[in-house]
Lab assay of single mutants.
Amino acid sequence: SGVNQQQLQQLMDMGFTREHAMEALLNTSTMEQATEYLLTHP
């Protein structure tokens, strides 16, 4: 699906929903950016 499943699982383990985590990974290129994205786009 174009996203790193390991990163997706890590974000879900942090408490984010699958949909939200996927959106973040699709819009960013690193785990750090994805986390930042999730925190700034709740």
Rank of each mutant, 00 (worst) to 15 (best):
1 S>E: 13
1 S>F: 09
1 S>Y: 07
1 S>K: 14
1 S>V: 13
1 S>A: 14
1 S>M: 13
1 S>I: 13
1 S>L: 11
2 G>H: 14
2 G>P: 12
2 G>W: 10
2 G>T: 12
2 G>M: 13
2 G>R: 12
2 G>Y: 10
2 G>C: 15
3 V>R: 06
3 V>F: 09
3 V>M: 07
3 V>I: 13
3 V>K: 06
3 V>N: 06
3 V>D: 06
3 V>W: 09
3 V>Q: 07
4 N>T: 08
4 N>I: 09
4 N>Q: 11
4 N>M: 09
4 N>K: 08
4 N>A: 08
4 N>Y: 09
4 N>S: 10
5 Q>M: 14
5 Q>A: 13
5 Q>L: 14
5 Q>Y: 11
5 Q>I: 13
5 Q>C: 13
5 Q>E: 13
5 Q>R: 11
5 Q>D: 10
5 Q>F: 12
6 Q>Y: 10
6 Q>C: 11
6 Q>H: 11
6 Q>A: 11
6 Q>E: 13
6 Q>F: 10
6 Q>M: 12
7 Q>M: 13
7 Q>P: 04
7 Q>I: 08
7 Q>L: 11
7 Q>T: 06
7 Q>C: 11
7 Q>F: 14
7 Q>S: 08
8 L>W: 04
8 L>T: 03
8 L>D: 00
8 L>K: 01
8 L>V: 07
8 L>G: 00
8 L>P: 00
8 L>N: 00
9 Q>F: 07
9 Q>D: 08
9 Q>M: 10
9 Q>W: 06
9 Q>P: 01
9 Q>H: 11
9 Q>T: 10
9 Q>V: 08
9 Q>I: 10
9 Q>S: 09
10 Q>R: 08
10 Q>N: 06
10 Q>A: 10
10 Q>G: 05
10 Q>T: 14
10 Q>M: 10
10 Q>K: 10
10 Q>S: 08
11 L>R: 00
11 L>S: 00
11 L>I: 05
11 L>P: 00
11 L>H: 01
11 L>T: 00
11 L>E: 00
11 L>N: 00
11 L>M: 04
11 L>V: 03
11 L>W: 01
12 M>H: 03
12 M>I: 12
12 M>L: 07
12 M>N: 02
12 M>R: 04
12 M>F: 03
12 M>P: 00
12 M>A: 04
12 M>Q: 07
12 M>K: 03
12 M>G: 01
13 D>T: 06
13 D>R: 08
13 D>N: 11
13 D>L: 08
13 D>E: 10
13 D>I: 06
13 D>F: 06
14 M>S: 04
14 M>V: 04
14 M>N: 04
14 M>I: 05
14 M>K: 05
14 M>L: 10
14 M>F: 06
14 M>W: 07
14 M>H: 05
15 G>I: 00
15 G>F: 03
15 G>K: 03
15 G>M: 03
15 G>N: 04
15 G>H: 04
15 G>D: 03
15 G>L: 02
15 G>Y: 02
16 F>C: 03
16 F>S: 03
16 F>P: 01
16 F>A: 07
16 F>R: 02
16 F>H: 07
16 F>I: 04
16 F>V: 05
17 T>H: 12
17 T>K: 14
17 T>M: 11
17 T>C: 15
17 T>Y: 08
17 T>R: 11
17 T>P: 15
17 T>V: 10
17 T>E: 13
18 R>C: 10
18 R>L: 08
18 R>I: 07
18 R>K: 12
18 R>W: 09
18 R>T: 06
18 R>N: 05
18 R>F: 09
18 R>Q: 09
18 R>H: 08
19 E>R: 10
19 E>H: 13
19 E>G: 10
19 E>P: 10
19 E>N: 11
19 E>S: 11
19 E>W: 12
19 E>Q: 10
19 E>I: 09
19 E>F: 11
19 E>T: 10
20 H>L: 15
20 H>A: 13
20 H>N: 09
20 H>P: 04
20 H>I: 14
20 H>Q: 09
20 H>E: 08
21 A>E: 00
21 A>M: 01
21 A>I: 09
21 A>V: 15
21 A>W: 01
21 A>K: 00
21 A>H: 00
21 A>D: 00
21 A>Q: 00
21 A>S: 12
21 A>T: 04
21 A>G: 04
21 A>N: 00
22 M>P: 00
22 M>R: 08
22 M>V: 12
22 M>W: 10
22 M>H: 07
22 M>N: 05
22 M>S: 08
22 M>A: 07
22 M>Y: 10
22 M>L: 13
22 M>E: 11
23 E>S: 06
23 E>G: 05
23 E>F: 12
23 E>Y: 13
23 E>R: 07
23 E>K: 07
24 A>K: 00
24 A>M: 01
24 A>S: 03
24 A>G: 04
24 A>F: 01
24 A>N: 00
24 A>T: 01
24 A>L: 01
24 A>Q: 00
24 A>I: 01
24 A>W: 01
25 L>P: 00
25 L>S: 02
25 L>G: 00
25 L>V: 04
25 L>T: 02
25 L>N: 00
25 L>W: 04
26 L>V: 09
26 L>K: 09
26 L>A: 09
26 L>Y: 06
26 L>S: 08
26 L>H: 08
26 L>G: 05
26 L>E: 10
26 L>M: 12
26 L>T: 08
27 N>L: 09
27 N>I: 09
27 N>R: 11
27 N>G: 04
27 N>P: 01
27 N>S: 07
28 T>Q: 02
28 T>P: 01
28 T>H: 05
28 T>N: 05
28 T>K: 03
28 T>S: 07
28 T>M: 03
28 T>C: 09
28 T>Y: 06
28 T>E: 02
29 S>M: 08
29 S>Q: 11
29 S>W: 06
29 S>L: 09
29 S>R: 09
29 S>I: 06
29 S>K: 12
29 S>E: 14
29 S>D: 14
29 S>T: 12
29 S>C: 13
30 T>K: 02
30 T>Y: 02
30 T>G: 05
30 T>V: 02
30 T>S: 13
30 T>N: 10
30 T>L: 02
31 M>A: 03
31 M>D: 02
31 M>E: 02
31 M>T: 03
31 M>L: 14
31 M>I: 13
31 M>H: 03
31 M>Q: 03
31 M>G: 01
31 M>K: 03
31 M>W: 12
32 E>S: 05
32 E>A: 09
32 E>N: 04
32 E>V: 05
32 E>I: 05
32 E>G: 04
32 E>L: 06
32 E>W: 04
32 E>R: 05
32 E>H: 04
33 Q>G: 07
33 Q>F: 03
33 Q>I: 02
33 Q>P: 00
33 Q>V: 02
33 Q>E: 15
33 Q>M: 06
33 Q>K: 06
33 Q>L: 06
33 Q>N: 04
33 Q>H: 05
34 A>Y: 02
34 A>H: 01
34 A>K: 01
34 A>N: 01
34 A>P: 00
34 A>T: 02
34 A>R: 00
34 A>E: 02
34 A>L: 04
34 A>I: 02
34 A>S: 01
34 A>M: 01
34 A>D: 02
35 T>F: 15
35 T>L: 15
35 T>A: 11
35 T>Q: 14
35 T>S: 05
35 T>I: 15
35 T>P: 09
36 E>M: 06
36 E>F: 04
36 E>I: 06
36 E>R: 06
36 E>V: 05
36 E>Q: 08
36 E>W: 05
36 E>L: 08
36 E>G: 03
36 E>K: 06
37 Y>S: 09
37 Y>G: 08
37 Y>C: 15
37 Y>A: 09
37 Y>V: 12
37 Y>K: 12
37 Y>W: 14
37 Y>I: 14
37 Y>L: 06
38 L>E: 03
38 L>Y: 03
38 L>R: 00
38 L>C: 11
38 L>K: 01
38 L>Q: 02
38 L>S: 01
39 L>T: 14
39 L>R: 11
39 L>Y: 13
39 L>V: 09
39 L>I: 10
39 L>G: 11
39 L>M: 14
39 L>E: 15
39 L>W: 09
39 L>D: 15
39 L>P: 12
39 L>S: 14
39 L>N: 15
40 T>A: 14
40 T>C: 15
40 T>N: 14
40 T>G: 13
40 T>I: 07
40 T>Y: 09
40 T>P: 03
40 T>V: 06
40 T>W: 08
41 H>Y: 14
41 H>P: 04
41 H>S: 07
41 H>T: 09
41 H>N: 07
41 H>D: 12
41 H>K: 05
41 H>M: 15
41 H>I: 10
41 H>C: 15
41 H>W: 13
41 H>Q: 09
41 H>L: 14
42 P>E: 14
42 P>L: 15
42 P>C: 14
42 P>W: 15
42 P>V: 15
42 P>K: 15
42 P>I: 15
42 P>S: 15
